[in-house]
Design a protein around this nucleic acid. Structure first.
Length: 174
DNA sequence: TGCGGAAGTG
DNA sequence: CACTTCCGCA
């Protein structure tokens, strides 16, 4: 028996939302998709009960510290039904994000990584308009990202629609 | 601690 | 494709 290992996990409903729907699935392949590691990290980061396990680094926007690597690995392993998961393996997965430009390491600071959130939202979800719906909901949920997304993005996308279209339709090999 | 190659999985 | 597993190297 694999207790607590369902195939797809939607955040338990109730009062508040957890995360916009579009963040859980890739544009193609509707319905069920396995959770991505960066979704999971974001999910933990969002919840107060994991404050002592993983948390945002105040000061540097998008930067987070894994305070308890073993626990994060354990939780990740439980979610993916991979009981043998450990921080060594999890961190390898995080390192693959460097080339994908989703994350990078904050050198010198132990267990500290930083989201390249501006490079994350737009290439992955080009249908999102900066000024509307889903992304606004997202930015309300994670005001921390407003800083990182707005500045580098507006410098690229601010000018006119064609620029925006070009930048946002550029879909690197993600 | 952190890195990245290499092979393997579903 | 997004990891997982394993490992030698620094």
């Amino acid at each position: 028996m694999k207790a607590g290992c369902s195939i797809v996990e939607k955040p338990e409903g109730g009062g508040g939302y957890q995360f916009p729907d579009w963040a859980y699935k890739t544009e193609s392949s509707p319905g069920s998709r396995q959770i991505q590691l960066w979704h999971f990290i974001l999910e933990l980061l969002q919840k107060d009960e994991f404050r002592h396990v993983i948390a945002w680094q105040q000061g540097e926007y998008g930067e987070f510290v894994i305070k308890d690597p073993d626990e994060v690995a354990r939780l990740w392993g439980r979610r993916k039904c991979k009981p043998q998961m450990n921080y060594d393996k999890l961190s390898r997965a995080l390192r693959y994000y460097y080339n994908k430009r989703i994350l990078h390491k904050t050198k010198g600071k132990r267990f500290t990584y930083k989201f390249n959130f501006n490079k994350l939202v737009m290439p992955n979800y080009p249908f999102i308009n900066i000024r509307s719906s889903a992304v606004n909901l997202f930015l309300q949920t994670f005001p921390i990202f407003y800083e990182t997304t707005s500045s580098p993005l507006s410098s690229e996308c601010h000018q006119n629609h064609s620029t925006l279209d070009r930048v946002c339709s550029e879909r690197p090999s993600l």
